Every structure is written in C-alpha cells, then in structure tokens.
Amino acid sequence: MIGEDKLALRIASIREARGISYGAMSQKLSEVGHPMDKSSIQKLEKGEPRRRICVDDVAAISKVLDVPVADLLELPTEKTVLSSSVREKLMHIGDEIKKIAGE
C-alpha cells in the first residue's frame, strides 16, 4: 500500500499519460456521479496544501481512469508501468482502427 502523497502522484501520472486534462477529468467524474471541479483535482494532485483524498474519490477516479482501485493503491512496478504503456498503445491503435472503419 502507498501513502496519500504517492497516491496523488500516481493519479496525476496516469491522468497525464492518458492525455486527460483537469477539465476533462472533472467532466468524467461528474458523469460517474462524483462531481469535482478542475481546481479540486489540481489541489488533490499538486496543491500546497494538497487536498485530502477520500475513499469515494479513489473509487470514482479508478472508474474514470479505468484502473482498478488496487492498482492505484500499489506502488508501480516495472511490470505495471510496462503493461500500462502497452495498454495505452493498444487503446490508441484501437481508436485508429475505429476511425478507419468509420465507427
């Protein structure tokens, strides 16, 4: 398990790796029933003082980022980072295939 500061960094790193802005993250959180404005997300990730992360935040963020809660709470390993990178590339390829197919 990791501490709240490392959890915040993990959330930021996954969000940034997926190219999700604070505004888009805020929109997606509202869509899953957990409204959070973009300044709250920024404070959660990098604020001084940093906004506390509650269990409801973690559950909603895991949905939005499509990452199991357990993965958010574990220190990333080389395998996790690699599989996340590979997964991102596969998602991108899938999106490109859908564009070509006209979906």
Score class of each variant (00 low, 15 high):
V69A: 04
P49Y: 01
A70E: 14
D66K: 09
A60I: 03
Y22F: 14
H34M: 11
K46L: 03
S83R: 05
A60C: 10
E31L: 10
L72K: 07
E31D: 15
Q27M: 12
P68K: 02
D5S: 10
A12M: 09
G19I: 01
A70Q: 05
E45V: 07
L72H: 06
A59P: 01
D95M: 05
I14S: 00
Y22I: 08
I93H: 01
K46N: 12
L90V: 05
K98P: 00
D71Q: 08
Q42T: 09
V67A: 02
K43T: 05
L90P: 04
S21V: 09
S85K: 13
L73T: 11
A70G: 04
H92V: 03
V64Q: 10
K6D: 07
M91H: 05
L90A: 02
K43F: 01
A59E: 15
L72C: 05
S84P: 10
M36I: 14
D5E: 11
R10S: 13
R18A: 02
D5L: 02
E16A: 09
S13Y: 02
A59W: 02
I11E: 08
E45H: 02
P49V: 01
G102Y: 03
D66Y: 01
K98L: 11
T77W: 06
T77C: 06
G23Q: 13
A70I: 09
A24C: 08
P76A: 10
D66H: 05
L65N: 03
L44M: 15
R52M: 12
I93Y: 06
E88K: 13
E45S: 09
I20R: 07
G102K: 03
E78T: 13
R52P: 14
R18I: 04
R51I: 09
R10G: 06
G47T: 06
K38V: 09
L90K: 00
V81S: 11
I20G: 12
S84L: 11
E103T: 12
L65F: 04
G47N: 06
P35W: 04
E16S: 08
S30W: 02
S62Q: 09
L44R: 02
L75G: 12
A60T: 05
P68S: 05
A101T: 01
K43R: 15
I53P: 14
P49C: 04
L9F: 03
L73S: 10
K46R: 14
M25Q: 12
L82H: 04
D5G: 06
